[in-house]
Amino acid sequence: MVSTSHLLILSAVLFALGMAGVVIRRNVIIVMMCIELMLNAVNVSFVAFARQLGSIDGHIIVFFVMAVAAAEAGVGLALVIAMFRHKSTVNLDHVNLMKG
């Protein structure tokens, strides 16, 4: 049987990878994929804890996270399309309307 800490280390590594992707990548679609990666890393923790504590609630949280991820992906990709239509680019460096 695998100990919980191994699962948590996996979760941490995946989360850190996703986070690094969000920070360093310029392609907005890949940034969104990295966000999905981070969400999944969190899901791993939930599942691990659900197993350890013998409680099914962790699985339900994972279910909700997935639903929200789906909604986020839908809206986010729609935004990417709109952005591409206006700027003809998916490069985040060229999207700086919020510049102070």
């Binding site: 049987m1 919980t4 800490s5 948590l8 979760s11 850190a16 990878l17 691990a48 197993r51 350890q52």
Partner: peptide
């Protein structure tokens, strides 16, 4: 960040129920 997360979790060595 990953190192810190992991370092926190390694000590969490409880066995699965």
């Amino acid at each position: 960040g990953a190192a810190l997360l992991a370092w926190n979790f390694v000590s969490y060595a409880a066995r699965a129920a």
